[in-house]
Design a protein around this nucleic acid. Structure first.
Lengths: 232, 232
DNA sequence: GTATGATTAAAACAATCGTTTGAAACGAGC
DNA sequence: GCTCGTTTCAAACGATTGTTTTAATCATAC
């Protein structure tokens, strides 16, 4: 360890992380072997254990290096919105934009690996490996309460429990959309415009807000007339 | 093979399928070993290969035995709704109910394993193992076009592409809600009422419909192809 | 009873897993 | 030149993977 940077070959660590990230999103954690990672990264097999200690520690580092920045940006976006509101409750679309907008912009970044990582993150949300779950819960511990409180203030007439469920649903819609496996071949014919990073966001955001602000279920059902409301 | 049923011990097959189903949703396909399955099922290790041929074939059978019924019910629900409409376009909520309602009712069945299976299915949507993807696409091949067409008729003013994307989002919200990992600990404090199978449906359905019928975003990019059939 | 086909049982197969080892190669300071 | 701490390398470790094998067991028909 010298006074200058301690890393002589900072390449290796990054090459491993990038290769692991790409392989994890493609095959999952278990189906991705150390040999697949190291051969793709062009490094020696033992270097993963040397630099990270274990496969499990590698997985955590894959998440940590990007998730820390992501959640920091989300809090920053929320701070900015609240500063502009001067004490007044935020509008729902501002909160949704702060939380999901950052994710979607990161997912639109295909050059620096943000896209790959968001796909991995979305996929991992439904993959409840014990230690990954705990890790995610810890990483989000500082973010979730802030957004919960902002939403409660923003929607005072909606029961808090209902708000949280809808936040839950929104997270699912986004994760699935970003993970983008399209298992039912629904949108296979309509490829996302690669040149336009905001294409997905412009489709998803209205959906999320529409769901969040939908009328509550236990309202008396009366729409029996033909002229029902439609989109557009 | 006699004229009667050929299965002397139909237990074994079912025990294996049930054990595999439960373990797959808990650990994933790769992390679930044959020995875990057979020991939980209380059968011999070799019986999986004897009855199913391979682990991959077992996975497919786990899906097939329930997915066939699920999709058949979805089509039946759609048929009933269309029969009642007498040629008129269905309302969006009827189509959503036909597709997602069946899923949610199956997910509410904790006694016969429907709940476990729907969790597995939701989890698998974001787990794009090659042969599973192909299998799912085949199983849904008869269902998806029917629902697509019904939605197109129901929402004539919304661009078909937009409808499919929103169907895509709805599927994600439901899958995530059913898979129910709650990675962010959002609704951990509000446990679902186990006694009430419709609890999740009453929360999710309004969200889905709100998202489906949300106002369209103004798209700055003008599609260069075709005559741009948009809402006038 | 015996014969027959289906199912189960225990053991072993080669292959791959994550990890560890010990030596070789490297780079900076003297 | 030499030394020292860091990193890379090839090889091997024991454990576990999915699968196969061979014999034992079962139920039924003759």
């Amino acid at each position: 360890m010298s006074l200058a940077d301690s890393k002589q070959h900072p390449d290796t660590r990054k090459r491993i992380l990038d290769a692991a990230e790409a392989l994890f999103v493609e095959h999952g954690f278990e189906a991705t072997s150390m040999r697949m990672i190291t051969s793709r990264a062009g490094v020696n097999l033992a270097s993963v254990n040397y630099h990270f200690g274990s496969k499990e520690a590698l997985i955590q580092e894959v998440f940590r290096r990007r998730l820390a920045w992501l959640n920091h940006e989300r809090l920053r976006a929320l701070d900015r919105a609240e500063a502009g509101a001067k004490g007044a409750p935020l509008k729902p679309h501002q909160i949704v934009e702060a939380f999901f907008g950052v994710s979607l912009r990161m997912a639109a970044d295909t050059e620096h690996g943000g896209h790959t990582f968001m796909r991995l993150l979305g996929r991992t949300y439904t993959e409840p490996t014990a230690f990954v779950r705990q890790f995610l819960a810890d990483e989000y511990a500082a973010v979730v309460p802030r957004f919960k409180q902002a939403l409660f203030r923003s929607l005072p007439d909606v029961p808090p429990e209902e708000i949280l469920w809808r936040f839950h649903f929104m997270l699912g819609a986004m994760s699935y959309a970003i993970a983008g496996t399209d298992a039912l071949q629904l949108v296979a014919e309509y490829e996302l415009d690669e040149k336009d990073p905001g294409a997905l966001a412009r489709r998803l955001m209205p959906f999320l807000l529409g769901g969040l602000r939908a009328p509550l279920a236990n309202q008396p059902v009366k729409p029996k007339e033909k002229g029902a409301r439609r989109a557009a």
